[in-house]
Design a protein around this nucleic acid. Structure first.
Length: 188
DNA sequence: CGTAAGATGAAG
DNA sequence: TTCATCTTACGG
């Protein structure tokens, strides 16, 4: 397949596992295999889209393939791929990558040298790939793109991380036994 | 208009 | 376990 099915956040969150997330910049190319995602839909009290369009979540209500970057905890950026049709606020949060290309650049951006910690968390991977609020509301295919990656087995679905509402939904997906998933994911 | 909480990460 | 650090949304 050439593109994953982005018509539904939950299906897309599962399908995106194994795809490669790539960014290009003047400094070079950085990329990694997506090994952990979470789905958020409009009817979901844990979603930024809950309650309808607001200033911050506007990109979530655009067409599938839009990039939604948000700033949180005063210092971190996280990146989502918007799914569904225009007007339907849903997205897939990218939570962890297994680094594949541009390791040197990622290590320089993160100021660490352990590959296991380069992109094993939603805010780590944005830093490693150089994703900022400037990428918010852009389209996949520019600075940020996805490419077919690898076939992965052992995708498991369980509860999401860092939320306080609608916590029982199994809308987090990750590769079982993959060492590059986020730390909080390992606490099942 | 003041303020609390937040889809986190790293250090102590 | 705590703190860093700030935007958004809401009056909790």
């Amino acid at each position: 397949m050439d593109m994953p099915d982005l018509s539904d956040a939950i299906a897309a969150a599962r399908q995106l596992i194994g795809w490669k997330l790539v960014t290009s910049s003047p400094e070079g190319i950085t990329a990694g295999i997506i090994v952990e995602t979470e789905a958020y839909v409009m009817s979901d009290p844990a979603s930024h889209a809950f309650g309808g369009p607001k200033q911050r979540n506007l990109p979530m209500f655009k067409d599938a393939g839009t990039i939604y970057v948000y700033f949180t905890y005063g210092m971190h950026y996280c990146v989502n791929i918007v799914t569904g049709s225009s007007g339907d606020g849903q997205a897939v949060l990218i939570r962890a990558l297994q680094p594949t290309e541009g390791m040197e650049l990622m290590m320089a951006r993160r100021n660490i040298n352990n590959p296991l910690q380069l992109a094993s968390g939603p805010a780590k991977l944005t830093q490693a790939l150089g994703i900022t609020i400037a990428d918010n509301d852009q389209q996949l295919g520019g600075h940020i793109r996805i490419e077919p990656g690898i076939q992965v087995d052992g995708i498991v679905a369980t509860t999401r991380v860092g939320i306080s509402k609608n916590v029982e939904k199994d809308w987090r997906f990750f590769v079982e036994n993959n060492p590059y998933i986020s730390k909080r994911s390992r606490i099942l």
